[in-house]
Every structure is written in C-alpha cells, then in structure tokens.
C-alpha cells in the first residue's frame, strides 16, 4: 500500500514535469499555427523545418548552435585534458589556485559569466560575434572537462608512465600511448558534457554574441518569443532536441555502467 502511494506520487510528479514537452511533441504533428488546435495528423512542420520553409533565421541559428558547440567542445576537451594532466602533477599552492579558478565558472551564475566576459571583450575592444561566443563557451565548458578527466588520472597507476619512459619512450610517445588511452573515457564524457552545455547555453551567449546578427538556437527562440508569436516549427524542433538529449543521456549512462562493471571485474 505504501509502495502504491509512493509510486503514484513519483509518476504524478513525472507526468507534471513532462506534460509541457509531451504537449509540444503531440502538437508538432499537426499544422495549426496556434498550439492547442488539432487540425489532423501532418508532418508538414517537420518537412518545412528541414526544407527551410521557415526562412533562413531558424536554420542558420541551428547551424550556428551546432558548429559553435562542436568547436567549443573540441577545444575544451584538448585544453581541459592537458590542464588536468598538468594539475594532477601540481602540488601545493599552485594546485589550489588553479583548482579554485577552475571552479569559478561552474559556481558562477550564467548571467555573471556572461556579463563579465562582455566587459572583457568591451575593454579589449574586440568586436563581438562568432569568435567571442566560441571563446566564452570554451571558458565555461573546459572546467567540466577537467572535472571528468581528473578522476581517470587519479585511478591511473602512476608508474606506467615512468615505466614507458624507462623503456625508452619519449614523453610525447608516453602521452600518446599510455596516458591518453587511460583517460580517454573521461575525455569522451567531458566532450559530450561540454557539447550539451554549449548547445544548452543561453545567458552567456546573449551577452557575447554582439549585434552583428549572430543567433544561436536559444537566442533565436528568445527573440521569437519576445515578438509574441511562436514560430510553429519550434515545436518539431523542441521535440527533436528532446529526443536527441534523451539518446545522448542513454549513451552516457550505458558507458558509465559498462565502466562500473569493468571496474568490478578487475
């Protein structure tokens, strides 16, 4: 009986949490301009989303979102992995200082990160646009990469790097053949994390995108919503984003479970 009430509570709460996204998902399969009107099943919104029937704004926003996320995640992964190896080998005050600085972007609210970077670019006289958004995204993504790579380094046997060097490997070979394979799972999780964070970001982007007309998906949605009428094509788009995130999350989970099982076997 207790279990019945507990389960009811859980699923009621879940129903509430998912009600909005489910409604959007359902109404992405009808043509009506206004959400809530059902005018029969149709995939027209999906085809018009992909055939560019919505004008160039939305499509270029989607493109920008993904290219920015891929560039920012790739650079963050490289920068963060090197940093993690460096921090792992640092001791004392230097390590404390860099760890503290690394924590700041994760603890700072997005709006503060956004405004502080905005002031930086203003002060340095850099015209804000694509480049500044990428730099800003690298700034708030890299700490998460460092955080996903660090545990891998701590689990690693420190002697195998030394052994490789003793056996005649150059430091570069030892990095490539010994350290990188050991930390690769952490790097991949870090990359996925950075990628989702970048796609998800709104507050930092809006302060660093400048006024040259650059839009990402979230700033586009924001501008669109402020105008009052929501572009109907945003419904299939939200649905696709939701399903994509769901898939990414399942992948991360399977990877984590596999890693846990592997650790148990050893």
């Amino acid at each position: 009986m207790k279990k019945f009430f507990a389960q009811t509570y859980l699923w009621l709460l879940l129903a509430l949490l998912y009600a909005p996204i489910i409604i959007i998902g359902i109404f992405s399969f009808t043509e009506a301009k206004v959400l809530g009107n059902w005018t029969g099943f149709s995939t027209k919104l999906y085809t018009s989303l992909f055939s560019g029937g919505v004008g160039n704004g939305l499509l270029s926003a989607i493109e920008n979102t993904f290219t920015i996320a891929i560039i920012a995640a790739a650079i963050s992964t490289i920068l963060g992995s090197f940093a993690a190896i460096g921090i792992h080998n640092l001791r004392g005050r230097k390590r404390q200082a860099i760890t503290l600085l690394n924590n700041i972007p994760m603890l700072n609210p997005d709006i503060i990160t956004g405004i502080s970077l905005f002031l930086l670019f203003i002060t340095l006289g850099i015209t804000q646009g694509y480049l500044t958004v990428v730099l800003a995204h690298i700034a708030f993504c890299t700490p998460y990469v460092v955080l996903s790579v660090m545990p891998r380094l701590q689990q690693m046997n420190p002697n195998i790097y030394e052994a490789a060097l003793d056996l005649g490997a150059t430091p570069l070979q030892a990095l490539w053949k010994v350290i990188i394979p050991e930390i690769r799972p952490g790097m991949i999780s870090g990359f996925i994390l950075a990628f989702t964070l970048s796609i998800d970001d709104f507050a930092v982007t809006i302060f660093t995108k400048g006024n040259q007309g650059l839009e990402t998906l979230s700033t586009f949605i924001y501008a669109d919503a402020r105008k009052g009428g929501l572009t109907p094509e945003l419904r299939p788009l939200s649905t696709i984003i939701f399903v994509t995130v769901l898939l990414l999350l399942i992948i991360i989970n399977i990877r984590a479970r596999r890693a846990a099982r592997k650790a148990e076997n050893i």
Partner: peptide
C-alpha cells in the same frame, strides 16, 4: 524513473519555459 527525473536538467531552459507557456495556454 531516476533517469526520467534527471533528464529535464539537460534540456534547454528556454525550450522548457516555452513548453510551460504552451501548457498554460493550452
């Protein structure tokens, strides 16, 4: 159930807010 509770954390906050606005409209 655990995963379903965590999942919304990963969806764009504006998309979620818009969905809420849509729900209220609905």
């Amino acid at each position: 159930a655990v995963m379903l509770f965590i999942l919304p954390m990963w969806i764009n906050i504006l998309v979620r807010t818009l969905a809420t606005v849509a729900l209220f409209d609905f």
